[in-house]
């Protein structure tokens, strides 16, 4: 919108969309596939959102299904009166908030530390090693966690008990499990997430640092007054996106890590949807839950974006 206002000659633009395509057809061609992807995998499936308001039937098309009771709101009422749903909602919020509080600052701090390293070979090695876990599937990570943290056969607990301590129930006690969950999540992602910040840091004008040195600024002062402000827009954008995802959560991480003993804190919305919707065949109920999840996500996203613009930062748009 802004660009159109500042364009000096709208009359020229008006007749030129076709000629733009002609002139830049290679670019539009490149754009075509991603657009098609979005259309097929993101927009077309939205048609089926109406299942949330209808009585699902496997043999009818989504347009033919009858409207659910209570003006289509039956499944929303059912979800919010189901204690399992409320529990999953609570767990999702708690786990994601903890993830945000613990997991969000760590990549930033890590990127700052890494940036201060002078010995580049060491820096590269550390970077590579820390982002490796990002490529491991959660099933494998759970396998590693079992080997390390199992109550009696896990390596960590074996060391603790051999030293005369009491085994720590990392995986089989709800309180400990939550922290194991958070820790594994941070371990898996902080190296990868720090890449964005490192890239942002690389974009800061080095003259600023030189000038600061001349003025007698120390390491921490430079970090605080130059590096952090320099990557602030990046931090804000990533924070907005993280907040927008507060009711989301991948499926594989909680699903792979949960076990029967900790389900009261490990069942989150995505696994709840799987258990009730796909395994329990209650497609309408869980589409309603999914829709609720998305709408809350959008509200949070818009709210965070609005706030950040209010506070004088660039938002997502």
């Amino acid at each position: 919108m802004k660009t159109s206002k500042t364009t000096p000659a709208p009359a020229v633009r008006k007749q030129s969309f076709g000629s733009y395509i002609k002139r830049y057809w290679q670019l539009y061609l490149l754009l075509f596939l991603p657009m098609l992807y979005l259309l097929v995998f993101k927009y077309i499936p939205m048609i089926y959102v109406q299942i949330a308001f209808k009585k699902y039937s496997i043999v009818q098309s989504v347009w033919e299904m009858p409207l659910a009771k209570n003006h289509g709101m039956q499944y929303f009422i059912q979800a919010f009166s189901n204690p399992d749903f409320i529990r999953a909602l609570r767990n999702t919020i708690v786990l994601n908030l903890l993830d945000l509080v613990v997991g969000f600052p760590i990549p930033i701090i890590f990127a700052l530390i890494l940036n201060e390293l002078v010995f580049t070979k060491f820096k590269k090695a550390v970077q590579t090693i820390t982002y490796m876990p990002h490529f491991l599937s959660w099933v494998i990570i759970y396998g590693i966690a079992l080997q390390l943290f199992a109550p009696s056969t896990g390596l960590v607990n074996m060391v603790i008990t051999k030293l005369g301590g009491e085994a720590v129930p990392f995986l089989n006690d709800t309180g400990h499990w939550v922290w194991t969950y958070i820790f594994l999540g941070v371990w898996q992602s902080f190296g990868w997430n720090s890449i964005v910040y490192l890239a942002a840091i690389a974009g800061i004008n080095s003259e600023l640092y030189e000038a600061a040195s001349v003025d007698g600024a120390g390491r921490f002062q430079k970090m605080w007054h130059i590096t952090l402000p320099g990557i602030k827009p990046t931090i804000v954008i990533l924070l907005i996106m993280a907040i927008g995802n507060i009711l989301g959560s991948g499926f594989d991480r909680p699903f792979a890590l949960q076990n029967n003993l900790v389900m009261s804190w490990a069942e989150v919305l995505s696994t709840y949807i799987y258990r009730y919707g796909i395994k329990g065949l209650q497609f309408s109920l869980t589409t309603a839950v999914g829709l609720f999840q998305s709408i809350v996500g959008v509200i949070f996203l818009l709210g965070a974006n609005y706030l950040s613009r209010k506070l004088g930062e660039r938002g997502l748009w």
Binding site: L39, Y43, I44, Y48, I58, V59, Q60, W63
Partner: peptide, 20 residues
Amino acid sequence: AMVVSLAACAAPAAAPAASG
């Protein structure tokens, strides 16, 4: 988008209905 999606959703819907 609408046209494509309509076509796309009509196709799978028709199949089970027919066999039903």
